[in-house]
Design a binder for these strands. Structure first.
Length: 365
RNA sequence: GGGUCGGUGGCAGAGUGGUCAAAUGCAUCAGACUGUAAAUCUGACGCCGCAAGGCUUCGGGGGUUCGACUCCCUCCCGGCCCA
């Protein structure tokens, strides 16, 4: 399923063959958390050159709910995205909702109880349910439910989260095998399954977690929680060394990574897969990633909201061929943003995604 | 001409004797955003100062008062009503 085509030091270029198509590694997936990349149609995502996108178990489970998705067939049919999909397990919501705001739910060794921030309703996710949902979504790659604690938690709490993540990973793998058998899925069509490595900033915990997950056995391993420390600095050593604990023939997924420079660094350390909200969210907020030359790793960012762009009729990024750069000036994009016109946010998000796609293409060589 | 209501910071608009350099919204100027509770959030926004603090403000002028954006007089300007 995963084939390494070339290697250089720790990094590698490869190809994954999945039920719904091939994906060249390293690659970046935009987050279509609720079944859509905000403001951007799938047709444009394909046109930009994206080969896979990420959807979220928790969010789709809540809305529209699995009944609707099953009626449509699966998530590919529902979204009309025939190419590979990866679903995140809802583990990140354990972090972003509950760890950050305990009122929004409760984590026990057995399950996660979410309280919907919008209507207060209760939703339970167990490792088994998370896997069942992901089979119903019909994705090409799925992720085990995990417990990602904030990096500034004390060591003993991080260690607890590691043990919980390992035990949930085992339950996920068991459920995965049950589902494969029950649904009579062939080896060629089976979705890949990823374990998630926790351990915060502690390399020994990361190592222990990885080793235990490898014992269970997964197609790929994700670097979980956050790859930046509580001060916002890239955890270079932990991210670099953790990659080395993962078997070479397994995929290495740097979850939630990241800025272009973080992605480039992670790639150098041997990570193959990335996803992040940065290009779309920051685009919507007016931040644009611009190449400084032909070399995509040399870039700068601008905030198109800044007053200095009001009369700047220069092109946005001469080295980009996206619909924004082909057709419009900085002054015009500034005007769209100051008018709060959604077209501006949309064009900026499209541009940033194109920047990411090209960056990854550049890494592949 | 008579009556009446009103004139507050870039705009809109609170405030009606001290707690007011003056609510709030908008605009403006910046910043943040990393497996999406995010078209969101944060800060600045009279002048000087890093700050403590100081200085000058609520149409103009004059007055009452320990103290006025708030009360009185007058002038200017605007809305509405009557002639």
């Amino acid at each position: 399923m995963f084939e390494i085509i070339s290697k250089r030091q720790n990094s590698r270029v490869g190809k994954i063959r999945l039920k719904n198509g091939e994906v060249n590694t390293p690659f970046f997936m935009p987050d279509a958390t609720r079944g859509f990349v905000r403001s951007i149609d799938n047709e444009i995502l394909e046109e930009i050159g994206l080969e896979a996108i990420l959807i979220n178990t928790y969010h789709l489970f809540l809305n529209p709910g699995m009944e609707i998705i099953k009626q449509a067939g699966d998530a590919h049919n529902f979204m009309n995205w025939p190419k590979p999909l990866l679903s995140d397990s809802g583990g990140y919501q354990v972090f972003s909702l509950i760890h950050k705001n305990p009122k929004l739910g409760k984590i026990t060794d057995n399950e996660v109880i979410f309280r919907s921030p919008t209507d207060g309703s209760k939703h339970i996710l167990t490792p088994e349910i998370a896997i069942q949902i992901q089979f119903d979504l019909g994705v090409d790659m799925m992720v085990c439910l995990d417990d990602p604690p904030p990096n500034d938690y004390p060591r003993e709490k991080i260690a607890m989260a590691v043990e919980r993540t390992i035990s949930w990973a085992k339950r996920c793998k068991d459920e995965y095998e049950r589902q494969i058998e029950k649904r009579k899925i062939s080896e060629a069509d089976r979705p890949l399954i990823f374990g998630v490595i926790q351990g915060g900033e502690y390399l020994d915990l990361r190592k222990h977690c990885t080793q235990e997950l490898v014992k269970i056995g997964f197609d790929g391993y994700g670097f979980g929680a956050r790859h930046i420390d509580s001060q916002g600095n890239f955890m270079e050593e932990v991210v670099r060394e953790t990659a080395k604990f993962i078997p070479e023939n397994a995929l290495r997924f740097a979850l939630g990574v990241g800025t272009p420079e973080d992605i480039v660094k992670c790639y150098g350390f041997g990570w193959d897969m990335f996803d992040c909200v940065i290009p779309t969210r920051e685009g919507r907020h007016g931040r644009l990633f611009l190449r400084k030359g032909k070399n995509f790793t040399d870039y700068e960012t601008i905030n198109i909201n800044n007053g200095k762009y009001k009369k700047d009729f220069s092109s946005i990024d001469e080295n980009c061929g996206c619909m924004l750069c082909k057709n419009h000036t900085k002054a015009y994009l500034h005007h769209l943003f100051s008018s709060k016109e959604m077209l501006g946010m949309r064009l900026a998000a499209i541009h940033n995604l194109k920047f990411y796609v090209d960056l990854l293409k550049g890494l592949r060589g």
